[in-house]
Amino acid sequence: MSSMFFGHYLLEHGAINREALLDAIEKQRSTNRSLPDIAVREGLLDQAKADQIHAMFRISNSSHEDLCVSEGRLSRTDVERLSRMQSAQWLRIGAALVKGGHLSDAALTTHLEAFNATEAVEQRTLESEFNHLEESTIVRACTELTLHHVARISGAPVKLQRIDPSDGTLKQGFRRFAQNIVGDREFCVAVDLEDPLFSIATRGMLGVEVDPAGDAAGDAGCELINLIGGNACTRLEPEGYTLRPQPPFSPDISDPGREKRPSIRGAALAGDDHFEINIFLNPP
């Protein structure tokens, strides 16, 4: 058992089938609107400006609200009004399943209560696992920043499923981007992106479709781990660490089983796609 999204939980417990989940996700996609998109619909922004705000969002640390003000030149009052509209219209996965006739109200309530109870246990387990890890402060900083940046760049909800010691191998169908960190501690931080998520991430970073096998896509992946590694060093500085990232790199992926070194691995989901963070505390 590991932490999961509510839709996946229902699927795993046989409450819905795959088609029902896909239908509900599609309903969410057609109903839920980002703040810039609502501003376009309300005639406050043009589409080009909204696209620009979406691109900024993916590669900055600012909120949609702040970007609508700074980039779209909307007033705070307008942004607050749009946020209220967004909240009122937002369709959660359970409601989408009920709306599609895939789940009754009563079943939703029952499953949601059970899911929340299970998730509470999973979150406590995750927290305990973090606390018992070697170099837990470093692992936590790298993991949280990976979740943050992958969520930004993919635009998908992100969830850490589990974190535990691993042999550090790169799985088939994933691309790895890594960065060595030197200083008070020496370690390597790597993000492994499943192919579909890698394509989404490169598009998010570059703003255009590129050949996933090309240099531009590789650069985008390296820049993602560079942000994670560099920001982690900065975040750890108040904890008393002096750390410095080295240039990011993409290890040879032709033989994923080749590299076997102990790591702390965090397995996570971005929507339906998998990604992992590996922290090698004893790099060669």
Binding site: L227, G229, G230, T234, E237, T242, R244, P245
Partner: peptide, 24 residues
């Protein structure tokens, strides 16, 4: 740089950089 530590900023500015901007 994505690195914004005190040490990195100090080293760059003391070498003569005008300023330091942290990504993103």
């Amino acid at each position: 740089s994505s690195l914004g530590t005190e040490d990195a900023v100090h080293q760059c500015l003391s070498t003569g950089a005008r300023s330091f901007l942290q990504k993103p």
